[in-house]
Amino acid sequence: MRAIGLALRQLKYEERSFRRNPAAAFFTIAFPLIFLVILNVIFGGGEIDTGERVISGATFYVPAIAALTVVNSCYTSVAMSWVFNRDQGVLKRIRGAPLPAWAFLFGRIAYTVILMIVLTVIVVAFGRIFYDVDIPGTTLPAVLVTLAVGAFAFCALGLAVASLVPNADAAPAVVNASILPLLFISDVFIPPDAGTPAWVEHVSSIFPVRHLSEALQTGFNPFETGAGFEPVHLGVIAAWGVAGLIVTLRFSSWEPRV
């Protein structure tokens, strides 16, 4: 019971640290909206043929940016903050205190996921207000499940890459180089009818980003008649999450690397 109290208490300090750094907080919130606006300006004017259906550019970009939000909030920021905190000795210090490791991790991850949900809601609301994009109705449970599976997988992958990155100086390079190309080839930044060669799509199908964006596209599709669940996509994302978890458990460290 005490450990659960401690875990919840960690959330409070995570939130406080976030709030006390207004510049970082502002751009964390603005980041997905900036992409939503820019991509809509460049590619969103006409209609986009996703291969299965033809939808407006904005209807494509709201779920695409929701996928970006999951990737950015979970994978990128978890990996960066873990490596930076490890190098600064924050993790080592926590390890020396009688706080269970899972309680610390819970605070960190739960705050990340809460932030991700808030950002996603902001993106969807922004899309509704400015681009008249439909909010998921019958497919809402599918969207929530997709977000949950995505949050698990990308947080686990963030921790996994953090455990492989040697130090804070290397973190931005490794994290960005591992995720930005995937965002470009996985129907997040660039719409699927932009003439992407088939082999590129085969490559991107191996990785979880494409599966996340496609599952969210289904959930946000106004013409979707079913519940909108995409078990294959969810399965691939979850499998990556499990792999990330295994790498994390095997290689993660709380000590600065020498």
Binding site: S17, R20, K92, G96, A97, P256
Partner: peptide
């Protein structure tokens, strides 16, 4: 761990919390 205190060579404290909040956070453990 409940009966020992450790002061490492490296600082490693959250920069945006206050002195009292930082000590309180650890007191809570």
């Amino acid at each position: 761990k409940e009966r020992t205190g450790v002061v490492l060579q490296q600082t490693g404290l959250e920069p945006y919390l206050t002195v009292a909040e930082t000590v309180d956070m650890f007191r809570g453990y």
